[in-house]
């Protein structure tokens, strides 16, 4: 049942400082939440294995510094990513405005076929909401991305968001993967058998071909 191979993807969390990138990652990989903001100064990563369509997908999630002064350096990490989370904070209009800038940096520095997903975090904090869900939906639509409102605090939509992006990256790399699949032992084994069945079926009644098809 388990396949013989793994696929590794790199996903990148981007967005202003304080939108909750580190918290999203922490919730997803360790199911923990830390209320204090210890700003990420650098680039951190964690591993996570997902099972998608029976394929073991290992994702390496990179958490970057959101502070503006590090952006010239963090940009250099974009090109290694196959998928990118553009994160804003629904309680911060400003962080939402900045998504435009993040997205244009991604266009400039990330590989062409990188998959993106828009994330509005802190959905639990309804009282301080400054960005309406519709605004997020609209922006995502304009960019042709999927959109999730999440809460690292309540664990709302976290797995869904990460899984969705991983699925999209998987789909986007389908062609390369199919090549891999061909080298997949059990897959081949099955196709061989299927061919055999078909042959024997059509051959039934025809004695000469019955065995040799």
């Amino acid at each position: 049942m388990a396949k013989q191979y793994d696929v590794l993807f790199r996903l990148l969390l981007l967005g202003d400082s304080g939108v909750g990138k580190t918290c999203l990652l922490c919730r997803f990989t360790d199911n923990e939440f830390h209320p204090s903001h210890i700003s990420t100064i650098g680039v951190d990563f964690k591993m996570k294995t997902l099972l998608i369509d029976g394929i073991k997908v290992r994702i390496q999630i990179w958490d970057t510094a959101g502070q503006e002064r590090y952006q010239t350096i963090t940009k250099q990490y974009y090109r290694r990513a196959q998928g990118i989370f553009l994160v804003y904070d629904i309680t911060s209009e400003r962080s939402f405005q900045h998504i435009m800038k993040w997205a244009s940096d991604v266009d400039e520095y990330a590989p062409d076929k990188v998959r993106k997903i828009l994330v509005g975090n802190k959905s639990d904090d309804v009282e301080k909401r400054q960005v309406a869900t519709e605004q997020g939906v609209k922006l995502a639509m304009a960019y042709g991305m999927d959109f999730f409102e999440t809460s690292a605090f309540t664990n709302h939509n976290i797995t869904e968001t990460f899984t969705r992006l991983a699925e999209q990256v998987l789909a986007a790399n389908k062609k390369d993967l199919d090549l891999l699949r061909i080298s997949l032992n059990d897959e081949l084994n099955l196709t061989a058998l299927e061919e055999e069945e078909g042959l024997c079926d059509s051959a039934s009644g025809d004695q000469q071909k019955a065995c040799w098809c």
Partner: peptide, 25 residues
């Protein structure tokens, strides 16, 4: 196919720089 798999290994180790190797077997 198992040879192919090993070939992949060889390949990915010798072409780490290339962007193609982003999806690694």
């Amino acid at each position: 196919s198992s040879r192919e798999e090993r070939d992949d290994l060889v390949r990915s180790s010798s072409h780490t720089a290339s962007n193609k190797a982003q999806i690694l077997a």
